[in-house]
Design a protein around this nucleic acid. Structure first.
Lengths: 116, 116
DNA sequence: GCCGACTATAACGCTTCCGTAACAATCGGA
DNA sequence: TCCGATTGTTACGGAAGCGTTATAGTCGGC
């Protein structure tokens, strides 16, 4: 199954959702931060700094800083990998799960309103 | 007509598109910046600093700074309103139109790939 | 013409992020 | 047991964003 979507609809959807994030949520996340957050919550663990850096095509300090920020907001947490102490495992949190869920609901709602 | 979309699909779509923006485009725009850009290109002109600030629920300097950045990248341009010289009209550019178009195509492409 | 209202921007001090480079800790094979 | 390779983090100077406040320019009713 696939989602049929014309470019104008796609852009309106994107606009409406990002506007919703800016207006209602107050936060102003960057594309990098959102990508990291959604990767951690949508893709199967474990997630490491190195893995995320490779996936996003950015350097490791970028990931470390993003995790610092989102960790401060309690959207993700970090834990040492006991099997290999060099690794850091990025974990989900209750607060982060709720936030991601809210984003999902927002997208669905705006999609439903499309061209109505 | 409306777009039927389940939360899991919606989130995967969002993830795939933002990942595409981060990986391929290199830029790292914030939600505010993207919202401003799409507003200018999707909604009927004229667009003013004050109008955008009200719409996004932020202060005017936030808009001015975002326009500085996106103007430097030639994604938008500014022009004085001749009818009321206090106003600044935000205008579209060729480069910006191509960029927005690219985003639209990216969303459509990722939507098509959904649950395939 | 004056003057309060309004527009956008500049200035301020502060915080956050950037990329590069250096770093400490850990692993694992010779 | 070394020692090169690997991991994540920190340090650095610089750029960009923040909110608040101040400012220059313009409008429009009186």
């Amino acid at each position: 199954m696939s989602i049929a979507l014309r470019p104008s609809e796609a852009l309106k959807l994107w606009h409406d959702v990002t506007l919703g994030l800016v207006r209602d949520d107050g936060h102003d996340f960057s594309a990098r931060q959102i990508t990291i957050l959604l990767t951690v919550y949508l893709e199967p663990p474990p997630h490491t700094v190195r893995g995320l850096a490779a996936k996003l095509g950015v350097t490791k300090p970028v990931i470390t800083r993003a995790l610092d920020t989102m960790g401060r907001l309690e959207l993700v947490s970090r834990r040492r990998d006991e099997a290999d102490l060099r690794n850091v495992i990025i974990q989900r949190t209750v607060k982060g799960a709720l936030f991601v869920e809210k984003i999902g609901d927002l997208i669905v709602a705006r999609a439903k309103e499309l061209s109505r």
